[in-house]
Nucleic acid binder design. Structure first.
Lengths: 113, 113
DNA sequence: CTGCCTCCCCTCGTACTGCGAGGGGGCTTG
DNA sequence: CAAGCCCCCTCGCAGTACGAGGGGAGGCAG
């Protein structure tokens, strides 16, 4: 019968931006690599679809948290490299704190007797 | 000048249901009391607006995870008491595991070097 | 050279959800 | 009788994650 099918979970609202910004904290990356990075560093748990990825990147560009420039990938393909701006770095820090605060509060509720 | 204004954070998608279900795990409560419970047991961090609350309760009723019956509140007012169904209890457990899994994965990404 | 796979980009439309604004009614206290 | 708390609900907006769909170009097997 069926193999055990992995259904990647839907990401909670707002977290996609956070994950992408974090992916860029260590240096520039292109979109495809961002998705791979998130997948890998989450232990193969999180799966970021391409549509979610690129719509989020548009948002981040629009808000001035990343900049993009075209270049060639390590596999010699046309790729857009995204870089964190200093505003983006601040935003990442602030949103991470916010995330921790909210998640902590939620967990307190869920663990309560 | 201005007091430090508390701006309650927007809750990540899907978590409202979870919090409500958890609020009912210890017994029936009416809507107003659910909001108070969440506020209190989150350490005054989470603030659930009434509109979010009641739209979520509609969802939960529709999905058969809670049932509702009218009664009188402890303050002698007309109140609708919500009770967890056994399906709701299972759903709560499953969603809590899912939440832990996803949040754990996100945190792994955010903490990564 | 042809077909196919991998890499890499993007948009459109859909479904869902959290929330502000708005609306109602009934105790209780001053 | 006014004010304030308790308690219920709907409507409409804005945001967002995602599936489906649509490219194109390099590399490799046949």
């Amino acid at each position: 019968m069926g193999q055990k099918e992995r259904i990647p979970p839907e990401l909670p609202g707002g977290t996609v931006d956070l994950l992408i910004l974090k992916s860029l904290a260590g240096g520039r990356r292109h979109g495809y690599a961002i998705a791979q990075y998130i997948r890998a560093s989450s232990g193969e748990v999180l799966e970021l679809g391409e549509s979610s990825l690129y719509t989020a990147l548009q948002r981040l560009l629009l808000n001035g948290w990343v900049t993009g420039e075209w270049g060639a990938s390590e596999h010699n393909r046309r790729a857009r490299y995204y870089t964190l701006t200093s505003a983006g770095r601040k935003h990442l820090a602030a949103e991470t704190r916010e995330f921790d605060l909210v998640v902590g509060a939620i967990q307190r509720v869920l663990r309560a007797v």
